[in-house]
C-alpha cells in the first residue's frame, strides 16, 4: 500500500528534488555573492565525520612517504625543520610588514604599534583531504571550532595566502583555496601599488584584474593582499606576475599570476585566528558557530585593525 503510494508520487518527487537542488544552487551562489561563507550545521556533521576517516586514510601513505626522511636519513632534523619553518613564516611575514610600512608611509611605525599589530595568533593545521570534485579547489583541515577556527578566517602558509575557511565543525574545517573560481581577494602590486582583484581560475593559476595603466604591472612583480577585501590581512603574498595582458583601449587589464603557495604540496597550513571587519560585521551575534573569535576560543584576544596584521604563530 505504502509502496504503491510512493510509486504514484514518483513524478511529483522528481520535480520536488529538482526544485530543491536548483533552489540550493541559487541560494548558495547568492550567499557567496554577498560574502556569507558560513554554511549550515548539516555540512559540519559530514565534515566532522570525514576528518578523522580521511586523516586515517592519508596517514599510512603519508607515513610511508615520510618514512625514509623521518626515521632513517633525517632523524631528528624534521622536527627542527618544522620549527624553523614556522619561525621562518613568522619572520617573513614580519619582514613583509616592515617593508610595507617603509613603502607605504616612508617611515617606520612605532615599536608599540608593531607589537600590537603582530599579535595575531595562528593555529597550525594539517591538510587531511582534498575536494571530492576535481572542478572545485578546497581542502579539509583537522582543526575546527574547538580550536577557535571559524568561517571567514584566512589560511596561509609560510609562502603566502592559501584561502579562507568556509565551513566548520567542532574538529574540522573546509578551506576554499585561492585557486577556486569562486575565490577572489583584493591585491596590490608591492612595487607600484597598483590595485586590483585577484581571482582563482579554477585551474593552477590566478588572474589579476587591475584598473591602472598597464605598465604599472610588470612581469616579476609581487602581488600581496591589500587588506581592503575584509578577509585577508594586509601584506600576505598572493603570487608573482608571469604575464600581463594590457589592452590600451580597455578599462580593466589582466595579468596572470603564479601563486606564491605550491597548492600541489599542501600539507601543513596556518589558520589566522582573525576575522576581517567586514566578515565580523556579517557574522557577529550569530552564536558560537559563527561568532567572532574570543579569548576563550583562541587563547588570547585577537581584535586587530584592518591594516597591517602580520601573522604570528601561537606558542
Amino acid at each position: 500500500m505504502l509502496r504503491a503510494l510512493i510509486e504514484r508520487l514518483r513524478v511529483p518527487l522528481l520535480l520536488l528534488l529538482v526544485a530543491l537542488a536548483l533552489l540550493a544552487i541559487a541560494s548558495d551562489r547568492r550567499a557567496l555573492a554577498r560574502g556569507d561563507r558560513e554554511s549550515g550545521w548539516w555540512r559540519g556533521v559530514l565534515l566532522e565525520l570525514a576528518a578523522p576517516v580521511q586523516k586515517a586514510l592519508t596517514a599510512p601513505v603519508d607515513g610511508t612517504r615520510n618514512a625514509w626522511s623521518h626515521y632513517v636519513a633525517l632523524r631528528g632534523v624534521r622536527q627542527e625543520n618544522e620549527r624553523l619553518r614556522e619561525r621562518l613564516a613568522q619572520l617573513e611575514e614580519e619582514n613583509l610588514q616592515f617593508r610595507e610600512a617603509l613603502v607605504e608611509g616612508g617611515r617606520l611605525r612605532t615599536i608599540a604599534d608593531m607589537r600590537r599589530d603582530v599579535e595575531v595568533p595562528m593555529r597550525p593545521a594539517q591538510v587531511v583531504g582534498m575536494d571530492v570534485s576535481p572542478w572545485f579547489h578546497s581542502v579539509l583541515v583537522d582543526r575546527g571550532r574547538s580550536d577557535g577556527v571559524h568561517a571567514g578566517m584566512p589560511v596561509v602558509t609560510e609562502d603566502g595566502v592559501v584561502g579562507v575557511i568556509t565551513a566548520t565543525s567542532p574538529n574540522a574545517a573546509r578551506t576554499l583555496l585561492l585557486l577556486d573560481a569562486q575565490s577572489s581577494v583584493d591585491g596590490i602590486v608591492q612595487r607600484s601599488r597598483a590595485r586590483g582583484i585577484v581571482r582563482g581560475t579554477g585551474g593552477d593559476g590566478l588572474e589579476f584584474e587591475f584598473f591602472v595603466r598597464g605598465d604599472d604591472v610588470q612581469v616579476g612583480d609581487l602581488v600581496i593582499t591589500s587588506g581592503f577585501g575584509g578577509v585577508h590581512p594586509k601584506g600576505s603574498r598572493i603570487g608573482e606576475v608571469v604575464a600581463v595582458h594590457a589592452d590600451p583601449t580597455a578599462f580593466a587589464h589582466r595579468a596572470v599570476l603564479r601563486p606564491a603557495v605550491d597548492f600541489g604540496r599542501l600539507e601543513q597550513v596556518f589558520v589566522l585566528l582573525w576575522r576581517g571587519p567586514a566578515l565580523d560585521l556579517l557574522y557577529d551575534g550569530e552564536g558560537d558557530q559563527t561568532g567572532p573569535v574570543s579569548e576563550t576560543t583562541a587563547g588570547r584576544q585577537t581584535a586587530a585593525p584592518a591594516a597591517a596584521v602580520p601573522a604570528k604563530p601561537t606558542p
Binding site: V18, L20, A24, I25, W42, L46, L47, V132, S133, H137
Partner: peptide, 21 residues
C-alpha cells in the same frame, strides 16, 4: 548520494544532487 558529495565539496550545494539525479 549527490547531496552528500555537495556537502563534502567546496562547490555550490545542489549541483551534484541534480547531476546524479
Amino acid at each position: 548520494v549527490g547531496g552528500t558529495a555537495d556537502l563534502l565539496s567546496g562547490g555550490p550545494l545542489g549541483q551534484h544532487a541534480l547531476l546524479d539525479l
